[in-house]
């Protein structure tokens, strides 16, 4: 497991972080986003999606109620998912989340720490810790492809 912390001082830093990560993402990648209510998971998802080229006319909104949002129009499709409301591992099968992993686009999965034992082994997991004001710490962790992305972030992101 490769891990690294990143310090975020402002919303602009979050956008820079999203842009840096997007530069290394390719179809099939899975990025999990964890952190408490209000940590900024949807905001970071938006920053990544925009950097992939999802046009501003497509709102990147919380998938909590919709469960899966699909955003076309970038250099690859972005699948934005949310496990917040899921009650059991069966829900994951019911939703067909597996069909998106390793597919033609990148999967951004909020509340990925629910059912973490069912998580793909080589995902990149970003855990956002709420500081004061706009300050956040993002811990990036992963193995395999996820570890590659952690290393990529270390060279690509400078706040």
């Amino acid at each position: 497991m490769t891990m690294a912390p990143f310090t975020i001082r402002s919303e602009a830093d979050t956008e820079t972080f999203g842009r840096a990560l997007a530069g290394g993402l390719r179809p099939g990648d899975v990025v999990g986003l964890c952190g408490d209510l209000g940590a900024g998971k949807t905001f970071l998802s938006g920053a990544i999606a925009r950097a992939i080229g999802v046009p501003a006319s497509t709102p990147v909104t919380s998938p909590t109620f919709t469960l899966i949002n699909e955003y076309p129009g970038g250099r690859m499709p972005v699948y934005h998912m949310d496990l917040y409301r899921l009650g059991s591992p069966h829900d994951l099968y019911e939703l067909g989340l597996w069909e998106y992993y390793g597919g033609d686009g990148v999967c951004l999965v909020e509340w990925c720490d629910r059912f973490s034992d069912l998580w793909p082994d080589d995902a990149l997991v970003l855990t956002i810790a709420l500081g004061t004001g706009e300050t956040r710490t993002i811990s990036a962790a992963g193995q395999g492809r996820g570890a590659e992305l952690v290393t990529f972030l270390q060279s690509a992101f400078h706040s």
Binding site: V60, T61, S62, T64, F65
Partner: peptide, 29 residues
């Protein structure tokens, strides 16, 4: 609602324009 928050100009049943919507969470959420 839980999944949507937007303002619509409803000119007729089939002539509806969205003037703006939420950029992140819906109000119900």
């Amino acid at each position: 609602s839980g999944g949507h928050t937007a303002i619509y100009h409803v000119r007729n049943w089939n002539d509806i324009e969205c003037l703006g919507q939420t950029r992140d969470d819906a109000a119900g959420e």
